[in-house]
Amino acid sequence: MRLVEKAQILDEKGMARALTRIAHEIIEKNRGTDDLVLIGIRRRGVPIAVRLAERIQRIEGTSVPVGFLDITLYRDDLTKLDYHPVLYKTQVDFPVTDKIVVLVDDVLYTGRTTRAAMDAIMDLGRPKVIQMAVMVDRGHRELPIRADYVGKNVPTSTREVVSVEINEIDGQDRIVILDRIGQNE
């Protein structure tokens, strides 16, 4: 099995625009930044959360706390894996109780990562509300979960892979759809 690039969904500029829009939406929906915290889900949710915080700071002039969450220990498929996911530290150096927590991730797909992230957050405290921001919503939900802020909705088939590339990790900003070629789905 190999992955072949099928289409580019967003380029660097497109991603920047989407992020700016999401920042505005977060501020608008929550009527400012009071009690607002951003928590990026490792790994690609982390730089996205940082960028959103930068934009919110530029727009509102207020600094929003940013945390990073590793959800590995909350995954529901650990016993089925045939490898060890690398465990990263969770860095949430502020209380989440009574806060508006915006979870940030790159792609929303089955919803299982979000479920794990919500459990992880709730083990840290009792937020007032949890919202979800993603760069791409590709559909195919397996749990009753939806995103509050979406960079781009992309209808996909399960054969396809959505790859959000982030400069901090991948050396460039862009979002592409890849297709699996060959057997062994």
């Binding site: 220990l73 909350y74 016993t79 465990l87 990263y88 530290k89 083990d123 840290l124 405290g125």
Partner: peptide, 26 residues
């Protein structure tokens, strides 16, 4: 090295108020 790297995130759990993760449920 893998064990030592994994122990760091585990230590965070011990220092939390809620010292439990569902990882090895069952």
């Amino acid at each position: 090295t893998q064990i030592l790297d994994t122990a760091g995130p585990m230590k965070q759990i011990i220092s939390r108020n809620l010292k439990k993760v569902p990882t090895l449920r069952g």
